[in-house]
Write a protein that binds this DNA or RNA. Structure first.
Lengths: 71, 71
DNA sequence: AATTATTTAATGTTTATCATTAAATAATTA
DNA sequence: TAATTATTTAATGATAAACATTAAATAATT
C-alpha cells in the first residue's frame, strides 16, 4: 500500500494546504484528495511542483507499507 | 524534475526487467517506458507492486532534482 | 460566534497509463 | 561473429483517473 504523507511535510513547513495550492497552481480540492489518500496516481508534474515548493523528496511524501497479512 | 531510478534498484537485485514485469503483471513495454523516463505519471498500484517485488521504498525509485537554473 | 481552512460531493474535460503487437536495437553468451 | 536473450521504440486503442470548477458540509482557529 502506498501512503501519502503530505500532511507531515506541510506541518513541518507550517504551510497551509491552500498556500501550497496557490504556489503550485493545483486546486486545493485535488491536493486535499491527494493528501487524504483518495487518489490512485500522481503526475510527475504535480509531484515535482510539490517537491520544489516544499523543498523535499518524493520519499518524504510517498511511503510503501507492506500490507498486513492478517487482512 | 522527477527522475525514475528503477534501473538502480533492479541492478542491485540483479533482476531483469522482464522478470519484474512477469512478477507484477505489468507489461515489459510499460515498465521500460517508466524506467527510461518516458512516462508522466504512475499509478500507486504500479508503484506498490514494484516496491513489493523489489522490497524497496518509493524514494528508492523516484528522485526530485531541482532544475538547473542555467537551463 | 465568527472566520478561516479543509474535506466531501458532483460533473465534465483532458491527459496519460496500460495492454498489445511488431519491429528495431542492445547486450549477452556460445 | 553468430545466435540468443533482453530492452527499447513505435503505433494504436481502451480505460482509468487526474484535474478544474462549483457548492455545500465539516473542522479548526481566533
Amino acid at each position: 500500500m502506498i501512503i501519502v504523507r503530505l500532511d507531515r511535510v506541510l506541518a513541518d513547513r507550517k504551510m497551509p494546504l491552500g498556500k501550497l495550492a496557490d504556489e503550485i497552481g493545483v486546486s486545493i480540492v485535488n491536493l486535499s484528495n491527494l493528501k487524504t489518500g483518495k487518489v490512485k496516481a500522481v503526475r510527475f508534474s504535480t509531484l515535482d511542483a510539490i517537491c520544489k515548493a516544499l523543498d523535499c523528496q518524493p520519499g518524504d511524501i510517498l511511503e510503501y507499507a507492506p500490507d498486513d497479512p492478517a487482512e
